[in-house]
């Protein structure tokens, strides 16, 4: 099977997503996340090149600037300030969860073969496989990691998966929608980062598995 350039870039993003799962070192996680988002920005730019849709270049630039630079930079500062370098532990060991991520990539391919709207459209299949795999990686990250910062990264990865799905299936949403989503993610991460400081201050740790008061 010969992949298109944008399909290859999408798969690259998926692989970076899986690599995030492979380590509990938070700064490495963020670097991989940054690379992963850069790949997604590149996919967007390539689709803009194909469709000659000028606003997609703008979106790609914004994604690159905000998601690949500002957010990782901000989270990096947060990590430094809190003084926690590695995740205190994962429910599934990091290598194991990386392999699980690879398996889920296969599952994503099977699922995307079955999605009713896509059956007649082989072009978008690789794109949707990559998007779904990124989604699964993000979920796995949120599910297995203890540190609250990993939850934020997981959330960002899920968001990237949804974005990639939208951009490969629809060839870009309107500019206003994209910009709105980006701004929302930015604000969400800012709020989550500030919340992290407060969690650290109140509980002396950022271990989410010990925050179990959310019930009657």
């Amino acid at each position: 099977m010969v992949l298109d350039t944008f399909e290859a870039l999408a798969m690259l993003a998926a692989i970076f997503g899986i690599l995030i799962l492979g380590t509990t070192h938070l700064r490495t996680n963020l670097s991989f996340y940054s690379l992963h988002t850069t790949a997604i920005a590149a996919v967007t730019a390539w689709i803009a090149n194909i469709t000659h849709d000028s606003h997609l270049y703008l979106v790609a630039a914004a994604v690159f600037a905000i998601k690949a630079w500002v957010i990782p930079y901000f989270l990096n500062t947060v990590i430094k300030k809190i003084g926690i370098g590695t995740d205190s532990g994962a429910f599934i060991a990091a290598p194991l969860s990386m392999h699980l991520g690879a398996l889920l990539l296969g599952l994503s391919y099977v699922i995307s073969l079955q999605i009713p709207g896509l059956i007649g459209d082989p072009d978008s299949r690789i794109g949707s496989t990559a998007a779904m795999s990124i989604l699964f990686s993000g979920v796995l990250l949120m599910l297995t990691r203890r540190a609250a910062i990993s939850q934020i990264v997981g959330f960002l990865v899920i968001e990237n998966g949804i974005y990639l799905f939208a951009v490969t299936q629809t060839h870009g949403m309107p500019l206003m929608v994209e910009m709105g989503l980006l701004l929302e993610v930015l604000v969400a991460v800012m709020v989550a980062g500030l919340l992290l400081f407060n969690i650290k201050k109140s509980f002396e740790h950022i271990d989410v598995s010990q925050l179990t008061e959310l019930k009657d």
Partner: peptide, 27 residues
Amino acid sequence: LQTGSIHIHLLYVFLTMILLVFLDTNI
């Protein structure tokens, strides 16, 4: 069902998502 653990609650969300995907496809 409501344990209070964030991870379990995330798992519920994830499982629901999987269920919905499987409901709509014919796997």
